[in-house]
Design a protein around this nucleic acid. Structure first.
Length: 306
DNA sequence: GACCAGGTGGGGA
DNA sequence: TCCCCACATGGT
């Protein structure tokens, strides 16, 4: 991503201030990030987010809080390393991208006003963003780990994966690097209580990223959304669901739509008062109104489930 | 104990 | 193309 414009952030001594668009609420995004007590990639304490940011040439430990609900206050902290972070713009850009602040949500909120499914979630969670997974390997691994198992168990698996193969900076974890996973064999991942297939998928994807066959740049350079989707589904272990999930959360394609998702089906059940899962046709019917905004529609519907 | 989890690949009709 | 099954384990 290009460096963000000068006028949306300020650099002051040991802190940054990020001025977000109107359609942003720190509180809503904080609530979203608080959804699992088992999350291992960041901590939330006293309405502040703490995490390690993997930058190009350094790791920043940051604390994010709300100066107002629309101004993000970023403080650098560290017990053992110099607090000086050389590239402040990179930090601001990372956060801008992480909270998807480049997207103008006005058209989405406009179409949601008259939408039977989106009306309620967009009103209740105004300012919530598609909080992303900027790291491609992390997004793919999280998708693979989460396939077909319940979310709380998925968080447990992710934690054991991260704690076994990730790097720790003080008390914060960096997601395992694909270079490291690419060198492993399925047996090395035996402790992780997931299927042998998933272990193969993780290693396979790590190899593709390591040897350069797969990258964000290549996926973003795809001619169109369908091409990017196919680039991913050709990879063993990545079906339509994982492909769309990653195109949503990492590449930020606005039309990504994991139509087979159980969570999406449950959100439909909830919103329409159904006892049974909706059919794919029913989902397509309602989704006609969301064209170009399927990612945000899905994200807000998922939000209704917790 | 059965059935379902933020599915997928592989085999067979 | 479509259907069926195995997959490992936890939650309910």
């Amino acid at each position: 991503m290009e460096t963000i414009p000068q006028d949306v952030w300020e650099d002051e001594h040991n802190r940054l201030r990020i001025f977000t668009p109107e359609e942003f609420s720190f509180k809503e995004n904080l609530n979203y990030l608080s959804r699992s007590a088992d999350e291992c990639m960041f901590d939330i304490l006293d309405e502040k987010i703490y995490r390690a940011l993997p930058l190009k040439n350094e790791t920043a430990l940051i604390e994010m809080s709300a100066e107002t609900d629309r101004i993000i206050h970023v403080r650098f902290f560290s017990n053992t390393t110099p607090e000086y972070i050389s590239d402040r713009a990179e930090v601001a850009t990372y956060i801008w991208n992480w909270f998807d602040l480049e997207t103008n949500l006005q058209p989405f909120y406009q179409l949601a006003k008259n939408d039977p499914l989106l009306h309620e979630p967009t009103a209740r969670f105004f300012g919530l963003r598609n909080v992303g997974l900027p790291n491609l390997f992390e997004a793919l691994a999280w998708g693979i780990i989460g396939q077909q198992i319940n979310l709380s168990y998925a968080y447990t698996l992710k934690r054991s994966f991260v704690e076994k193969f990730g790097d720790q900076v003080e008390n914060y974890w960096l997601f395992p690097r694909p270079e490291k996973i690419a060198r492993l064999h399925v047996e090395d991942l035996f402790d992780l209580k997931m299927t042998a297939r998933k272990r193969e998928y993780l290693i396979g994807v790590a190899k593709l990223i390591t040897n350069g066959e797969l990258s964000k740049a290549k996926l973003l350079a795809a001619e169109d959304f369908k091409t990017a989707e196919t680039m991913l589904t050709r990879i063993r272990g990545i079906g339509p669901w994982t492909s769309n999930y990653v195109l949503m959360r990492c590449l930020r394609y606005p039309s990504a739509f994991p139509i087979d998702d159980v969570g999406l089906q449950n959100a439909f059940k909830l919103m329409l008062g159904y006892k049974e899962k909706p059919t794919k046709e029913e989902i397509r019917h309602y989704a006609k109104n969301w064209q170009g905004w399927e990612t945000y529609a899905t994200f807000y519907l998922w939000r209704m489930l917790y």
